[in-house]
Amino acid sequence: MKKIKLVIAYDGTDFSGFQAQPGQRTIQGTLQETLTRITGEPIEIYGSGRTDAGVHALGQVCHFETTSPIPVDKYPYILRRSLPRDILVLSAEEAASDFHARKSAYWKTYRYQTDRHRIPDLFERRFRTHLPYEVDQPAMQRAADRLVGTHDFTSFCSAKTVIEDRVRTIYRCEVGEDTHGFFIEVTGNGFLYNMVRIIAGTLYEVGRRNLDPEQIPAILEGRDRRLAGPTFPPEGLILLEVGYRPWQDFHRSANVISP
């Protein structure tokens, strides 16, 4: 029995999220069906996390176990020919027996990106949220800095969240700009339901001067979803990377794929 680690990318627009659901098109379900057909044995996929419907990935990590004799280095080629075009297998490698895509992960990085142009970019609309307004990016960064650290993020997760422990650590939260608009990158040891989309909505409210950066600590301490900004739409959110070394020991390599 071999344990195989996959790094995959996907356009989440036409999927009902990562997690397999009866009667729904999902990333996990599509991978399992395809690998079961290829290997001739039942395959169960484990992911580093569950992205929501409409959310994308450039560095999602999965693993599965198999007794198939297919050489590990052949899986990317075989899967690229077998999967639909909106899922792409970037790499495959044999993992240690104790590796787990979710449980072994130390951190994840998400990016939320926008399109600031007056007329939406037709070819970017699946991957950027259209926000054709000026924002105060320095103020947004000051607010983002106040999210870094270990906090209770109850104010920054969906009211539907059932997890009781809402303490998470944010290692970095940066506001940047590209030719399309502003983007927000957040790295943390874990994220609650809708957390990054609410962070993006809250920082946007700061950028529009509807919130002051100095209000962020009070929003965190209030532990009340109503205190934070809106939940931004899913199309702007991308899972960029999953890390399997402690953040403190990690130095991001120059060959990380950028959107």
Rank of each mutant, 00 (worst) to 15 (best):
K3P: 00
K3C: 06
I4F: 14
I4P: 07
K5H: 09
V7A: 06
V7Q: 13
I8V: 15
D11S: 08
D14F: 14
D14M: 07
D14W: 05
D14P: 01
S16V: 02
F18P: 10
Q21I: 02
P22T: 12
G23R: 12
T30C: 08
L31C: 05
Q32C: 10
L35V: 07
T39K: 06
I43P: 06
E44Q: 11
G47M: 02
S48F: 03
T51G: 06
A53R: 15
G54W: 03
V55W: 05
V55A: 10
L58E: 09
V61G: 03
F64S: 04
F64D: 06
E65S: 06
E65P: 00
E65D: 14
T66V: 10
T66A: 10
V72Q: 05
L79F: 14
R80Y: 01
L88P: 00
V89P: 14
L90S: 00
E94Y: 07
A95K: 08
F99M: 11
F99N: 13
F99G: 12
F99C: 12
A101H: 05
A101F: 07
S104D: 01
Y106T: 01
T109H: 01
T109S: 12
T114L: 13
R116L: 09
H117G: 02
I119L: 13
R128A: 04
R128F: 07
H130K: 07
H130C: 09
L131E: 15
Y133Q: 13
Y133K: 13
E134Q: 12
V135Q: 09
A139N: 00
M140S: 03
R142D: 14
A144N: 08
V148I: 15
T150L: 10
D152P: 12
T154Y: 02
T154G: 00
F156P: 05
S158V: 04
I163F: 01
E164L: 14
R168L: 08
T169G: 12
T169D: 13
E174T: 15
G176Y: 13
E177G: 00
T179L: 03
G181F: 03
I184Q: 07
E185C: 09
V186P: 10
T187A: 15
F191K: 12
L192H: 06
L192C: 07
N194R: 15
M195A: 10
M195P: 05
V196M: 05
I198P: 07
I199W: 04
A200T: 03
T202E: 12
T202Q: 08
L203F: 13
Y204N: 10
Y204R: 11
R208H: 04
L211S: 00
L211D: 00
D212M: 14
P213G: 13
P213E: 12
E214Y: 02
Q215R: 13
I216G: 11
L220R: 02
R226N: 14
L227W: 11
G229T: 09
G229Q: 11
P234N: 04
I238V: 15
G243V: 08
Y244M: 08
R245C: 04
R245Y: 04
W247E: 14
F250Q: 13
H251P: 00
H251W: 13
V256P: 04
S258C: 04
